[in-house]
Design a protein around this nucleic acid. Structure first.
Lengths: 110, 110
DNA sequence: ACTTCTCCTATCGAATGACTATAGGAGCCA
DNA sequence: TGGCTCCTATAGTCATTCGATAGGAGAAGT
């Protein structure tokens, strides 16, 4: 019944991923952990949301990936942001600003 | 392909409707117009989004409705917020605050 | 009266995207 | 060897939103 935190992410996931990766390289679970970290625990991305998103974003050309070794010597796929991914981060940041401003205005009204 | 303004609402529609109705009575298109107004034109809710949402929210007990006459003497269904709807507005307002704070923090990080 | 316009409610089909649950490979350690 | 953890991955499901479309009914103009 409840909607848990369904829709909590709705549309912010891509931006969070792009932000989490930043200018570095991270593998899937690393991205997940970093998102939890930079949102102070508010967003906990589950594998079932994360991997489809990563594949989608690689398809879109915002991320590239390569196989490497994790900190624990395990096989892991690392992601890096592309130029297009940087631009996309900018676009989505602006969109987010528009939304929050509109909502702030709506929540102020009586 | 493109996402136009698909997902622009991202889960905020219920809250916007509750806010738009406020303590008064509004019919469907009136709610739609008021949302556009209080978000300064950012959110334009289409019938295909609005009516399913209204039905859903009435089902959930957050709104009640009755048939009446519009300002233009046309048959219209008016919606009013229930007590539960008021509580829900509070809950969703808090959730929204949590999300925006988390995002603000995430977008600040390098 | 008749046509046309606008207002208002309503539904359908498609697409998106997030969740739960599950699977499975592979290194680490006892 | 057996179990734990790390890591990637998919299947199935569900909720939400969109575009397109339908249609009734009062208003306005001729």
């Amino acid at each position: 019944m409840g909607k848990n935190q369904t829709n909590l992410l709705q549309g912010t996931l891509d931006l969070l991923i792009l932000r989490a990766v930043g200018d570095g390289e991270l593998h899937g679970l690393g991205i997940s952990r970093r998102i939890e970290q930079i949102t102070r625990g508010t967003f906990q991305v589950k594998p079932g949301s994360l991997f489809p998103a990563l594949h989608r974003m690689e398809e879109a050309g915002w991320l590239t990936s390569f196989w490497g070794e994790s900190e624990n010597n395990r096989r892991a796929k690392f992601y890096r942001r592309t130029k297009a991914g940087e631009r996309q981060a900018g676009v989505e940041t602006e969109q987010w600003a528009t939304i929050t401003q509109a909502m702030a205005h709506a929540l102020k009204a009586t």
